[in-house]
Write a protein that binds this DNA or RNA. Sequence first.
RNA 1: GCCCGAGUGGCGGAAUUGGUAUACGCGUUCGACUUAAAAUCGAAUGGGAAACCAUAUGGGUUCAAGUCCCAUCUCGGGCACCA
Length: 785
Amino acid sequence: MDRYEPLKIEAKWQEKWEAEQPYRAIEKSGMPKMMLAEMFPYPSGAGLHVGHVRNFTIVDVLTRFYEQQRMNVMRPFGYDTFGLPAENYAIKTGVSPKAATATNIANFRKQAKRLGFAIDWSREINTSDPEYYKWTQWCFLQLYKKGLAYQKESYQWWCPEDQTVLANEQVENGKCWRCGHEVEKKKMKQWFFKITEYADELLDEIDALDWPEKIRTMQKNWIGRSAGAEIEFAVGSRKITVFTTRPDTILGATFLVVAPEYAGLEYIVSDDCRDAVMKYKADALKKSEIERQENKEKTGVFTGAYAINPATKEKIPVWVADYVLAGYGTGAIMAVPAYDERDREFAEKFDLPIVEAELVDRDLYGTPKVTYKMRDWLISRQRYWGCPIPIAYDKDGNPHPIPEDQLPVMIPEVDDYRPDNSGRSALAKAKDWLKVEIPVTDPKTGETHMEEMTRETDTLDGYACSSWYLWRYASPHDTEYAWNPEAIKYWEPVDVYVGADHAVAHLLYVRFWCKFFADEGFLPFREPIKKLIYHGYINAPDGKKMSKSKGNVIDPLDVINDGYGADTLRTYEMFIGPVELDAAWDPRSVGGVYRFLNRCYNLMTSALVPGPRPSGPSPRADGAISRAAALRNTPELNTDIIRHKTIKKVTTDIHKCNFNTAVAALMEYVNELYKVGATTEDLVVLAKLLKPFAPHLASEMLERLEADDEWPKWDEKYLVAENVEIVVQVNGKLRAKLNIAADDAADEEKVKELAFADERIQKYIADGVKKAIFVPRAKLLNLVV
RNA sequence: GCCCGAGUGGCGGAAUUGGUAUACGCGUUCGACUUAAAAUCGAAUGGGAAACCAUAUGGGUUCAAGUCCCAUCUCGGGCACCA
């Protein structure tokens, strides 16, 4: 007996796809293009997890859906390979990050192929490949040339465990996003990208994007624009400039507060207060972010200095307190305890005056100023396994860019991957590599000579590598350009981008780089991603996060190899719930999806067997199929209506990314076909609609049915039934359903006549009907008694 | 604390502009097939004997409310001294 054996079918089709590579994307002018991508994975040693499968399957369903509609589709694939896990593994085992990465990529590729994704494998990229990071360095140099990559000495987040600085976006609740260790503040000279240059545009254009509101709100909050004013307060011969959003409250400003890290603090502090202020500053710097958050009790000390309020001309004291943040505004505020809750709390604690003053004109004493919460993006990392920053220093310590023709700056081979104790990465251990000859032009004579310099030993934040990879997909092997201008013009921006993480960091950085490279004339668009699908996580059956330590991890490859196959896994993960919500894995529901695919297969085989239906018991298909077969071809029971209804439902559901209800509609269709019998046309349509979810089974069905996979169209004429059901309510309650001819259903008088004559209705309307509301659109009649 | 989002059967979840609540799947029960089990197929499945009552709770608007309005409770997410 022919039965559904997913592992056999899937092996057959995967072999065929491997040999034929049918998903190559080729530019075809005049043909509408559709480019789709997932947030490329970090290939860990553990292999694919169920979350990857959800992510990649969403992209695959859409890819196949558009491909079947004969759009010119590109669905590339790549690996985000720099980062701490590979480096820490190297420190522990001595296996080089390069070798470990190669092994992990091979495993990921194999597993992705086992899931049957419609990937153009010729467009595979890897951020730690020198052919790739050469261009990451090129991007850095473009930003450097325009002053958007710069060095600054300031207090930075430092992770003592990973021995590296971190960007603001990589500190979560005062802890390192990678290892969870508490972070500290450390004063260091570091490289930054000037993302704040684009703060306004990043904010203003976000609402025009087809992105989930949640992400747009998070980005807006992160950028955090506030309009206010800067006001100068004289302090002896010096001055303190404060930022305020309420310059109109200046008459109530009874003291100033500066942050502990405030740059001019040591110059204004009086001698008798100096010890107390310096001690307070030292304590504040030592405090971890966690401690600062836990203790919101106001603390602070008087500096001994007084400022002149420019509005009242009164002398007001200057305090230092850690509730004022060094990095925001000017690091100094005018405290108006009558209007600001925090200032009031501080004033009450330290017995400072609170004055309920009148408001003044906003522009009277200050200059208008817009401030952002977002800071510039700190990109230096004191780690080995990253993209080297293409910079060298002369003997005076001045930075010089590595000339573009010397790229890539290769990562040197070392024996020990540990950072050295001086706060430098392991790159510092490659003594020969450190020395480099850089051409220097004398500004006076215009002559160029070579000068020996020392290379930068910091590497770039991995987010830099992922800030441009979507463009590399357009021309992944180009040796002349980071992205080929013609290819980028055809394929991009990305039409659909799918992911579950990086709401602010990555998704803000790609927008920033896009705007910069558009300004430089390298990109013909200013937003890189048209539509973003942000899907939920898949949790363990107990609803908790899957984790190795809890032992509740579901391995997708186990699900496949248990006999369910990739089609069941894929379809299940689309059926699991609304795409944007988290879902809990349910092993029994996986079985339900398997049964559904099995029913699809049996429907086909029983229809394809010529002659009388198989009789008697059989392993998978028996009586009901026979009955369905017996009903087939009986003209009264044609399936045109349900077929067209299903085409419409599945098509519109996929457009709306309602994958769970699309699968439900297919299940409903199969259930119907089991009852009334399937025509060949029904089976072909079923296979076509099923293909995005279960491509192996669907391909097998289409082959046996000798049909192509072109997406079917529905015809509205089949959706208009000859008879319709009219709902009759009495006082809003369902009392009867009338099955009447479609022509009569639009006729109010006719419907009423039939309803009044219906015995189920008569008993409710014996005392007369006050009002009758007929809604043809809803096919509903409501009688008010 | 502030800003969003969500509360629907035993469970995951469906329900155009307000218009038949509970699609689909799981689970459960019964039946067919089988020596038996599994698998498969079929039937039933919100509660209640019924009238009726049910979409977190209490009000409101409406001929009609899961959907709109007000209040309350619970859960989830984001931000968190941003002046």
